[in-house]
Design a protein around this nucleic acid. Sequence first.
DNA 1: GTCTATACTACGATAGAC
DNA 2: GTCTATCGTAGTATAGAC
Lengths: 219, 219
Amino acid sequence: MSAVAPADRRHRRRLETIEQVLDVAVEVMAEQGVAGLTLGEVARRMGIRPPSLYVYFDGKHALYDALFERGWRLLLETVHRAQSRMARDDPLAEFRDGMDQFVRWAVDNPAYSALMFWRPVPGFTPSERAYAPATALAAEGRAEVVRLRDAGILRPDVDVDRAFTAQVTLVSGVISQQLSNAPHEPFDGGTWTAVLPELLDMWLAHHCSSAPSRPGESS
Amino acid sequence: MSAVAPADRRHRRRLETIEQVLDVAVEVMAEQGVAGLTLGEVARRMGIRPPSLYVYFDGKHALYDALFERGWRLLLETVHRAQSRMARDDPLAEFRDGMDQFVRWAVDNPAYSALMFWRPVPGFTPSERAYAPATALAAEGRAEVVRLRDAGILRPDVDVDRAFTAQVTLVSGVISQQLSNAPHEPFDGGTWTAVLPELLDMWLAHHCSSAPSRPGESS
DNA sequence: GTCTATACTACGATAGAC
DNA sequence: GTCTATCGTAGTATAGAC
């Protein structure tokens, strides 16, 4: 019995250890900053010695790379989970909710965000593999703009790429300001997250096919 | 003759050396990243030894602090210089130009920007003195919003603080995206800087007292 | 004000025993 | 897979001669 597929068990154990390394690394980044991550501190918190980490990661850059990929993957899953909870018949509400979830996750995970959105590590460039979930999320965001256009919410002749660039900029601005100026404020009630709905309204009104109609305004 | 005010000459020489240290430090940050700044590298490029730097700066954090202050002061001067070149009778053009200059400087000086807008150095918090020019610039930006309101361009009942927060977020978003995603693109023709005018139009239209009138649209 | 010398700590990474 | 031992490097900072 105990000899059934021992390689699988080793493999699973290995994956669990890798996950644990990543968890601890995120903790360290959250406390010491992204650039303050050291293999020694990760090893110390795990109760092992630094050389043992080399069994799981081929050096510090590989660890950063795995963290970068994991962050985008977690964010991707967060957005997907929110979408699957939504009714499928309201593209506008879905759009707003997606942006909301995106910013919420970023603000709730400042260590990941700093690594993902800024580039604070001198020699590190993410691999193509690590970029993949980021690219996927960008593609889905752009598709969301197309959906809004096809649903008649945005003008039919809207420049999708330009509109998407503007939208990403808004969201990125909120995240950047919130994290760098008031990192300890939660998403709800944050100084900068509070203006997100207004900014999305601005964006929608600007690309709107009909006259701008914002919530709270008389029609 | 040569004995006239020798203390002044020493003092000036000292200030010049301090400026040189800051210049070199910015160079190093631009090449190695903000967190990649080391006293040894600065000293090497200046042709001196690391201990000599302690005559001018009380350690690495003091150097970061001086760089932080200098960056905001340079940005403040850049905006002022642009304003003094402008005609004083067009608040709207002045507003647009100010934002333009702000983003242009930030994109042209990525090393300063990373230190000023993000917080990539683990243990470093800017001193009050270093913050002063940043605070001054924020106050002037808010005053600009008040001017736009008083000139009748924005609604009389506009929430100035909220509008200013939104405006800062837009500008911050452009800078963040441009610097982290395409740092080598110049301001002119940058993927993200290109949407700045459109974002400012959005912001203006959203707070406008009359119906939104954007350039290129029929009135 | 600059230097040499040095203390002290820390880092990433590798070799090789177990 | 984990360890000890160690290499090689780099960093901040201080003491004290010149």
